[in-house]
């Protein structure tokens, strides 16, 4: 298998980029693939905390770029999954410590040994975002079913189009079917109607996500839990498998959605 670089971004902060990276990485690695995550949020790192690897950090991505260590030395092996690695961000530097071409070089080196390279982009559309999308083969945009997050996603999609990046796919996170039914939340269709890009995953709201991230154990590894299942499904779709969307009130919506996509 040729390796793939996937960047997870969103524009708006707090929509679940880091959670998505941690869970997709765990799900892919649980299938026996070698996965390396890179935390692109230099100065505000989080991915190490969510993966529960904070206390093992010795070197970080800036150390690699500035030549203070070899790439291997900065790769922290996960506690449970032997094929999952994290390259943490530096906490005491800022985004300008790394350039887009540094990221391309680093990813090209990692392509030699990893099947998947997942990059956790920072919020915003500035340097950190540009660093994160520079090496991407595929881009996932995370959004929540709320207007401000969808607007920011639209802005990011526009920037990616302008830079002639590959067409991104969408993950709608924190979906609450009851609220949609009451008309208090945007539906999958409402979000798709504005953004018009391929939907690769719908993740239901689930309090286990917060519990898992506080514990530092990605919930995609548990057997149960709807959010964990949703992330595992996205991982399978990234692998090219056809996985039906979960029934969170969403089947009829999904059927209409696929019709829409085919119609274009």
């Amino acid at each position: 298998m040729t390796s793939k670089v996937i960047t997870v971004t969103s524009g708006k902060g707090g929509v679940g980029k880091t959670t998505t990276v941690a869970n997709l990485a765990a799900a892919l690695a649980a299938d026996g693939k070698k996965v390396v995550c890179i935390d692109g949020d230099i100065g505000l790192r989080n991915l190490d905390v969510i993966m529960g690897l904070e206390n093992r950090i010795v070197y970080d991505v800036v150390d690699i770029v500035e030549g203070r260590c070899r790439t291997r030395q900065a790769m922290i092996r996960d506690k449970r999954l032997p094929d999952l690695f994290l390259i943490p961000a530096a906490q005491t530097r800022d985004k300008n410590a790394v350039s887009p071409s540094d990221m391309v070089r680093l990813c090209n080196e990692l392509r030699e040994e990893a099947d998947w390279i997942l990059i956790d982009s920072p919020a915003g559309i500035e340097r950190g975002f540009r660093n994160s999308i520079a090496p991407a083969d595929e881009i996932l945009i995370v959004t929540n079913p709320e207007m401000s997050a969808v607007r920011d996603a639209d802005r990011v999609i526009g920037l990616l189009e302008a830079e002639e990046k590959p067409a991104p796919s969408l993950i709608i996170n924190r979906m609450n079917p009851d609220m949609v039914k009451r008309g208090d939340m945007l539906s999958v269709e409402d979000v798709y109607d504005l953004l018009r890009i391929n939907v690769i995953g719908i993740v239901p709201e689930d309090e286990n996500v917060i519990i898992a991230s506080n514990r530092g154990t990605p919930l995609a590894l548990d057997g149960k839990g709807r959010a964990g299942q949703a992330f595992r499904n996205i991982a399978h779709r990234l692998n090219g498998e056809e996985v039906p969307f979960m029934d969170l009130e969403a089947r009829s919506i999904w059927e209409r959605l696929t019709k829409l996509t085919r119609g274009r």
Binding site: N96, S99, P100, S101, R127, R130, A134, A162, E163, E164
Partner: peptide, 16 residues
Amino acid sequence: EVSDLISLRDFLSERG
């Protein structure tokens, strides 16, 4: 073209 401007912008931004 857009690609010309992108590569110039990235070159410049790497030099502050």
